[in-house]
Amino acid sequence: MAAMGTPGALRVASWHLTAFRRFWRLNLLSSLVQPLLYLLGLGVGVGSLVDRNTGSGQLLGSASYVAFVAPGLLVTTAMALTAGESMWPVMGSLTWQRGYHGIAATSLEARDIVFGHGTWMMVRSGIAATAVAIVLACFRETRSWGLLPGILAAIAVGVSFAMPIMAFSINVKLDGAFAGLQRFLIIPLFLFGGAFYPISQLPTVVQWVARLFPLWHGVVMARDFSVGDVDWAGVVGHTAYIAAWVVAGTWIAIIRLRKRLYP
């Protein structure tokens, strides 16, 4: 029997890391630009409008609109990042560059590739959310210890999107499908997932759709942490729900990747 060495997932993750290191500045910058633009554009612009209206603070449950949006940005950044990283790169590793096929020919197998992707997506979500949190900590209005558990919520949401989307991408034949996924899932969730206003403002049906996906659960947790009003039973429920997405996505991804790599 072979001795247990470094877990396969870590060996695969170190492959991702090597590729990432080549372009890390660009990668980090691009995952920072978007949240900062939203923070400035919406937080400051819309915020000045919202904060002037009496009663909004009560509805939002936070001191200011910027403080309301900030934790949402932490979590949506992770979602946008891992969603994209689980589309083209996954397809490319199977079709254009065939990196997964290279790994599958070694003593590693489909499960290691999927776990490796998940591990790497945790790292990437963590890096991106930490970078956003550092920026948020620079401003008095958005500064809070709650940003730290907020990073954890962002990582959880990041992986919960990465795994099901990876499962989807494994069998995608034309990359046009990804543009569709971005337009019809990721962007709508970004807008209607509770990051910019409480979903109670939405029609009931839309509220339920928002609740169906993990984003809203992560946003709510991150916001509760930053506002300092934590409902621990809620945290357990949200975390369990997000974890269910991770487990289901991982499971389907392994089955599909196995079929794809070992036909």
Partner: peptide
């Protein structure tokens, strides 16, 4: 078909 990492 080669499975090299062409970017590395």
């Amino acid at each position: 078909l080669d499975t090299l990492d062409v970017e590395l």
